[in-house]
Structure formats: structure tokens, C-alpha cells
Design a protein around this nucleic acid. Sequence first.
DNA 1: TTCGTTTATCGTCGATTTACGATTGATAGC
DNA 2: GCTATCAATCGTAAATCGACGATAAACGAA
Lengths: 115, 115
Amino acid sequence: MPVAASPLSDTADRKVADLAKALAHPARLRILRLLLATPGCIGGDIVDAVGLAQSTVSEHLRILKAAGVISGEISGPRVCYALNPDALALLADFVASLKVPDSALCCIPNPKAAP
Amino acid sequence: MPVAASPLSDTADRKVADLAKALAHPARLRILRLLLATPGCIGGDIVDAVGLAQSTVSEHLRILKAAGVISGEISGPRVCYALNPDALALLADFVASLKVPDSALCCIPNPKAAP
DNA sequence: TTCGTTTATCGTCGATTTACGATTGATAGC
DNA sequence: GCTATCAATCGTAAATCGACGATAAACGAA
């Protein structure tokens, strides 16, 4: 048994990967930035800002909502989107966990040197 | 001019999105976890650990390397991979920037109430 | 009710991703 | 030289993604 990943992190990996996938598109990042920078409610203004078709933006919003990164609240004829910053905690934890303390960064070229 | 995203963040968005895409797969997260947990050098052991074909694992390694998240050093007949934690700084910054200070989280349903 | 506005969904297309086996290239040892 | 091993690359097939126009649904206002 050479190396083994903890089986516990199997589902966690999927969740983190889903969060990362939600952020893996410039248009979605721009939407998140927009939501962060806009104090009030924005609806169709998002469409103008990202420069894509309304249906495309709606799809991106759906993906972000499915990942839990944003939440949409119906407010009259329009929908109000708000950031859900806590939803990214798992991803943030993973990224932070990779901040290795400057050890384990080198190579042991000898294959049989593994005590 | 209702809302406007800063045009400066346009290329930054692409970079962050590319980093997020590199993390957007459970196998790649597992590889990163493996590299973090393994003090020395691991080559083909990664293949056993993730349970995918050697060519598939090699492709994931290529993606991680292209994103700068890992670096591979040839060491004799095998290749030694090491984490590149600083490469994720942009992504970490973005995630951290979404930690809005508990304001701007509500909805202004009235579209014409924007002083 | 009817009209205009806003958002969601559907269908479709091309591009990208993921996975695999097979092959190639490089290296250590005989 | 030859052989074995490890990693990268080459096709290739299935699945997913991203974008669009067209359409539908929900709501407020006239």
C-alpha cells in the first residue's frame, strides 16, 4: 500500500470541485463582483454589464444559485440576487490547506527511500 | 449608466477562472491533497490512489501544471511533482474579497430608489 | 383585462472536457 | 547493444459546457 487518500475526503472533494466549477467562468466571476459592488438590488442590469444574452446570463445565475453561491429572492416583477459568502467556505478551506509550511516541497529522487 | 464592472478586472477574471477550473474536478483535488500529504516524491503511486487510467491521471497532472498549481521535476525515470501554493493566491484573494461585511446583503425592491 | 417588463426555460449548435487504450519517448539496469 | 519501467502523447468516443434565439411564465400598471 504505497499511498492512500483518505476516503472521507471523497464527497468533500466533489463539493469543493462543484464550488470551483461555479467560479470557473469569467462571466460568473463578473456577476459575483457586480453583486459585491452593488449595494442594492440589480436585475436586468447584470445582462448589460456582462454583455451576454439574457438567457445566457440567466443560465449563469442558475449555476451560481445551484452552487449556493448566490440566492435569488423574488421581489415584484424582478428577482433580487444576493451573495452567499459562506457557501465558499469549503473552497476557501481547501485553498488555505494547500499553504504548506515550506516543507515537503522537495523531491526524494530515490524511489526506495520511503520509511 | 446603471452599473459598470471595472474593465481592469477583465483579464483578472480570466486568470481566476482558469485557476478555479483547475480545481473543478475531484480527481485533481485528490491529487493536490495527495501531494500535500506525501512528504517525498510520488510518481505512479498517484495513479493507484486516484483509481483512474495512467493516461487520464497524466492529463490531470498536465492541467494542474498548466495552471501553475503544481510543478514537475524530472528525476531519473520518474517525475517528481510538488505543490505550488502561491499559484492559487489570485483565487484565494477573490474568495476572500467576497466576504462582504454583512451589509449590502438586502434587497431594494424599488427600482427608482437609488440616490 | 390587456399591455409591457422581467426572468426562466426550451431546443439546438459548436466547443470543450473527460476518460480510455494504444503508442511513443526517455531512462536505468543487464 | 537489449529489456523493463515510467511518464507523456496520440487518437477517439461520450459527456458536459456555453451561447444563442425563441418561447413561456409571473407580475405591476394602465
